[in-house]
């Protein structure tokens, strides 16, 4: 019933590593998201972009998974950025306070520009 999440990883030069998420971000996505994050972390990623597909379904269990990633990223002094979220889910992420720990940008390009300039969203 759940749209199984597809997770892929790409590197944008020395600027950032992108984790592309396609599908539902719910409790079923936990293993895939954590595996991708652990993989890029062990590869030495410092700036990590979680790129969502705009119309995918995200629930509070999915947000809890992302908070778990934030926790790990803080320990490793990584910078987390999130892109591609719909206006609705940007609002939800702000509502629960996730944006205190991860900047939001409309697109990967916007995030990369900001990271190059050392800015925050």
């Amino acid at each position: 019933m759940s749209d199984e999440i597809q997770v892929s990883v790409r590197t944008l030069g020395d600027v950032a590593t992108v984790i592309d998420l396609m599908g539902d971000v719910t409790t079923f996505a936990e293993e895939a998201i954590n595996q991708a994050y652990q993989g890029v972390s062990s590869g030495g990623a410092v700036n990590i972009i979680f790129n969502f597909r705009e119309n995918d379904y995200i629930n509070s269990a999915g947000i809890a998974i992302l908070i778990g990633v934030v926790t790990e990223a803080r320990k490793r002094e990584q910078k987390l950025v999130m892109t591609g979220l719909s206006a609705h889910f940007q609002k939800i992420f702000r509502m629960v306070g996730l944006t205190q720990y991860a900047d939001l940008y409309p697109s990967v390009d916007d995030a990369v520009s900001a990271l190059r300039n050392g800015g925050s969203g």
């Binding site: 803080r74 509502m95 629960v96």
Partner: peptide
């Protein structure tokens, strides 16, 4: 209490009713 969750002082979750 997202700060508590991030600092691992609170368990993850419990956001649904608030949302």
């Amino acid at each position: 209490d997202i700060k508590g969750m991030v600092e691992e002082k609170k368990r993850l979750g419990g956001m649904g009713l608030y949302i």
